[in-house]
Simulated scan of single mutants.
Amino acid sequence: MKSLWVSMETIHDVTYFAPEARAAHEAVGLRGFWRGYVAMRAAPMGAAPLGLVSAVFYNFSPGFLARSLPEVWSIASPSAALEARLSGAVAVLGSFEVPVLGTLRSLVSAVGWAGRPLGAANAALPWPSDPVGALWHACTVLREHRGDGHNAVLAAEGIDGVEAHALRDAADGSRAMVQRARGWTDEEWDAGVSRLVARGLIASGALTASGVALRSHIEARTDALGAVPYVSIPLGDLETLESFLRPIARRLVPSVIPYPNPVGAPAP
């Protein structure tokens, strides 16, 4: 159910875009958008070094990440970053009853974590006692599960981080937005494009038929891998979950989360 993933992605994304989330990470010393982003997203793995974070933040430039790592861990401990990201997410989402927590817990329990490092690190965290915090936590765990699978598919197809963005740009012209947000230099980006041209995936700045087929395959395979835990949940429960999450996600876009945005998720 791709629309369910889109709602979960949107709810997770408040931690990057909401002023309340920015204030929470600045309160623990993580000033500047990217310090907060890197610390809060990497914190489930502990004080992770640059190499590990670069591996799981697959489509970010390692040189870009090096501006924050390992310095961020001397500013805020992983535990402080985790507390900040949760409090910021709850601050923007608000307070309400979450009758679908049972379904979300079942989904998280149904996931197999082999080869899913960032998702597994989030899943190992304790569930928040606050119901809205638990909602955000579940969406985050399932979001990172899907993201880990996407990275695995890219790697299996021999597409590195910058090449993934270049493929997307050849389809939708997103370079101006994405390149800056992921920290790739012009030289790195253009070299990635050249590699894709050599593979026959891009020609004259556009996707070739092979490029279109590869992108479609990557997205379809990502969806298939991400859907595995959902097959164990009754369809009616999934429909109820989607009906609950979609209005929450829709009120966040574009008032809190801009659209389009570098994450690349469709609007809910």
Rank of each mutant, 00 (worst) to 15 (best):
I248C: 01
L82F: 08
M1Q: 01
R250D: 07
A138Q: 01
E157Y: 12
V162M: 13
E26V: 04
A191L: 09
V212P: 00
L154P: 14
A198R: 15
H25G: 07
A124F: 06
A224Q: 13
V53F: 13
G29C: 05
V38N: 09
T222S: 15
P49V: 08
A220F: 07
A155V: 10
L93A: 12
P262N: 11
G200E: 04
A91N: 15
S106P: 00
S74E: 15
A42N: 10
A209D: 12
M8Y: 03
E144N: 02
A171D: 05
D13K: 07
A181W: 10
K2Y: 04
V162C: 15
M40G: 09
D13C: 06
L135M: 10
F96C: 09
P258L: 13
R251I: 00
P49N: 08
V72E: 05
F57T: 00
G192T: 01
L30W: 02
S79D: 15
V231Q: 12
A42C: 11
A138K: 04
H12D: 01
G173V: 03
S204L: 08
A267E: 11
L104V: 14
R41K: 13
A27S: 15
R199L: 10
T240Y: 01
G236I: 01
A166V: 12
A227F: 05
V100G: 05
H165T: 00
H165N: 02
G88E: 15
L225K: 02
S74L: 10
A66W: 14
A152Q: 10
S54Q: 09
E144S: 00
L50Q: 03
S174N: 04
A121S: 10
P62I: 05
P247Q: 10
A203W: 03
V132R: 08
E239V: 04
R215Y: 02
A138H: 02
V38H: 11
